[in-house]
Design a protein around this nucleic acid. Structure first.
Lengths: 344, 344
DNA sequence: AGTTAGCACTCTATCTAAAAGAGTGCTAAC
DNA sequence: GTTAGCACTCTTTTAGATAGAGTGCTAACT
């Protein structure tokens, strides 16, 4: 069944009102606050229909209506107008973002903080996943008699290293040969390729004399590659949720915060999401029902893709938040295009 | 005024009772539960005296007594007996600690998790402060035409690197000379020494031809050293506080959690604390009054010192928690003595 | 057929008063 | 020094009454 124009308008009005006031909306307040030229009774009838269609719910008989997840979905997909930020807001974001631009991770973290401040929600930011990063070179450095450092450098500038200790010592020359050999073998491939294809296992191409060292090195090499794939997750504004009526009970607050204690799981879920601005509402999130999650992607060097997002109650200013995030991620991508992504 | 033996016993009984039940303790329940051979009225008199001396407080006229910070301090210093862990508990800790021992940071994090699980409090762990780590060598590596990697390696095995981009390219030879030069200059000094004395500024000893590169390098060098000093802080069991009656109001919970949003400040405070098991109670903590904070130190290679701790309400099982932490940190130090601290 | 006024009905939230409970503090006796 | 007894205080619980918000239905109106 199609929704009539008036029903859409009423639904939108209810969403506005509920998002603003966090309280079930009655027919009377809609009739009064928004000028539909009809009486509360008419609105009541429409609301009843909307409820039947699943767009509204009823906490109890004598309460007003609350938009359902389905209503928010409709709103986000069809009703919502892109909100254009005021120049003041834009300048605020640009300035704050530019202010702190020394290290890459710092900038990302800063962006998350900014986002949580503006939206008054809990936000997070992730450093790019490096699985498409390309190996630039591999180097083995002797640290002392028994210690060798394995270092992998990606084209993005990302570096990862691990210290290894051996009983025997290896000469600079041996290590150099092996470094060059490994570099030749793996240079130009993405981390994913190297890890997932069995290339590492195939050592036959390596010089025989180095086989023993290479054997010892292999697990460390894999571990270092995996470390390199790790993304960093920064959370900001966690305590903001205490100011949101939805989470004013201890149980709800606890449930909300527990999401973030499982960082790995959370990270995995975020990485699975599509690029661009993505909104998932309530039940659409397998866990964290009664939350909405909005993520957006930024680019580094036009290649690597990092994510930034906010989490809050389904009752959320979707238009504002998505607009802010779009502007913010564009800005971030721009920043990382010009200055080139430095890494720790 | 000295406390009589009986007053000490009564105080201890009140502390036990309050720690267990989280409710103001009345004279009657003390008389009944602990066999002092005197009537509630007598206990009442003693309690009144204890209150006058500042060991007890009164939420309101007709409520029982609650131990003050002063009482807990007395308890921790004089009354508390060291609780010896059961073999079962010991085995549990040892096993869990040994189970996950691949990477250094992982082990630390794991220890914090374990601590929060056992105590049901919020815990944290910090990687060692490297300020006494000694520079082993410094290396400049060419990554591509415009990119140089600065790498500082400490004797502990800790490595830190930063990528630099230049307009001009430097040959392997130039970088090698500078690497050797820098290594000679700084090798054997602690990070603190190098950063705080003005050694870095004194470039006169460096070969003239390299001065321009060195000039560009200097800020990066300092930044990398500082990064190396950074300690990692891991928090575990944050949501445990929701199960503690003291924090069952949203405001209290919020205040508690806000402590951890200021990681830098918190880290600084923890680093200032003395070595060994240190207990600070309520007002003794400048911020976070009405919390108690217990920290303990573990050693890596017998040198570097990391910290692990718990935070909870002043109403806490000090004897148990301190014993667990002592055992845990000894165990950690032992682990890091044998396997040698690897670092990412 | 759509719209509207009117009104009974439902459910929640708020307020009040009363009662119960816990524990003290004091007094007088042991 | 100890204790029983008891009045007093303050909090917590309970219950009932009331007010308020909003619906859902009916019947009348356009």
């Amino acid at each position: 069944m199609e929704l009539s124009e008036r029903q859409l308008q009423i639904l939108q009005a209810i969403i506005y009102d509920y998002v603003e006031n966090a309280e079930p909306v009655g027919s009377r307040s809609i009739a009064k606050r928004y000028d539909f030229g009809v009486s509360p009774a008419t609105i009541r009838n429409e609301m009843s229909d909307l409820e039947e269609m699943g767009y509204l719910t009823h906490p109890h008989t004598s309460a007003g209506r609350v938009p359902s997840d389905k209503a928010y979905r409709l709103y986000v997909d069809d009703l919502m107008k892109k909100k254009s930020l005021s120049n003041k807001d834009k300048r605020f974001i640009s300035d704050r973002l530019a202010a702190n631009c020394t290290a890459f991770d710092e900038t990302i973290k800063h962006a998350a903080k900014l986002l949580s401040e503006i939206t008054q929600l809990t936000s997070f930011a992730m450093t790019p996943s490096s699985n498409q990063d390309i190996i630039s070179f591999i180097k083995l450095l002797p640290a002392d008699e028994n210690t060798v450092i394995l270092m992998i450098v990606g084209e993005s500038g990302r570096i990862m290293n691990t210290t290894l200790r051996f009983e025997v010592s290896y000469s600079q020359e041996v290590l150099d040969i092996l470094s060059k050999n490994m570099t030749v073998n793996y240079k130009g491939r993405t981390l994913d390729e190297v890890l997932e294809s069995g290339i590492i296992a195939d050592a036959s191409s390596d010089i025989e004399a180095l086989n023993s060292l290479l054997g010892k090195l292999r697990p460390t090499f894999i571990k270092t590659l995996e470390d390199m794939l790790d993304v960093n997750l920064y959370m900001e504004g966690m305590t903001n949720i205490f100011d949101i009526p939805e989470y004013s009970s201890i149980d709800r607050a606890k449930a909300f915060l527990e999401i973030f204690t499982k960082k790995e799981e959370f990270t995995r879920k975020i990485l699975e999401r599509a690029d661009g601005v993505v909104v998932t509402i309530g039940d659409e999130n397998d866990s964290m029902k009664d939350c909405s999650l909005i993520t957006a992607t930024y680019h580094v060097d036009g290649n690597l893709i990092g994510k930034i997002g906010v989490i809050g109650p389904t009752r959320m200013k979707y238009d504002e938040v998505t607009s802010i995030m779009e502007y913010l991620t564009n800005n971030l991508s721009e920043t990382f295009k010009l200055t080139d992504g430095k890494d720790k």
